[in-house]
Simulated scan of single mutants.
Amino acid sequence: MDPRGMMLLFGAIVCELIGTNALKAADGFTRLMPTLLVIAGYGASFYLMSLSLRTIPLGVAYAIWSGLGTAAIAVIGVLVWREQLNITGVIGIVLIIAGVVLLNMFGGSEQ
């Protein structure tokens, strides 16, 4: 896969993580600054994702974006927001990461 496309995709993931954490902090959109960060984070994420789709197949890009985003948010939830994660959640995150690795190794089609 194209390195530039992957960098754009990882930038999209980082922006999505920022937006999702701000969503938690926005407290139902009752706090202005986190709410603005939600809008900026998701807007930047979608923009960067759209640019990454120039060189990465849609299915692969979306699987990486959603899979890594889900796994990272679960970890951030535990570390930052003090949320609980049981063994079933840990196994699920490991499976998501394994799926992303497999897609990167064997699932990408050249455009």
Rank of each mutant, 00 (worst) to 15 (best):
G92H: 07
A44V: 02
M105E: 08
L8N: 04
T20P: 10
Q84N: 06
I64Y: 03
F10N: 01
G99V: 02
G59H: 10
A44D: 01
M7T: 12
E16R: 12
G99S: 12
T30C: 04
T20G: 13
S45R: 02
P57K: 14
A12M: 05
M33Y: 14
A63F: 08
Y62D: 00
A25Y: 15
L17P: 07
A26E: 11
G92D: 11
N21G: 15
S66R: 01
P57V: 00
M33P: 08
V80E: 07
I13T: 02
M1C: 04
N21D: 09
F106E: 10
V38F: 08
R82C: 03
I64Q: 02
G67L: 06
R4G: 00
L32K: 14
T88W: 13
V80F: 13
S66M: 12
A25P: 00
I93C: 11
I91H: 08
R31Q: 14
A72H: 05
M33Q: 14
T70H: 06
Q111C: 01
L17Q: 07
G77D: 05
A61R: 02
F46A: 05
V78A: 13
P3H: 11
M33G: 06
T20D: 10
G69T: 03
Y42I: 00
V101H: 06
M1T: 09
M1N: 06
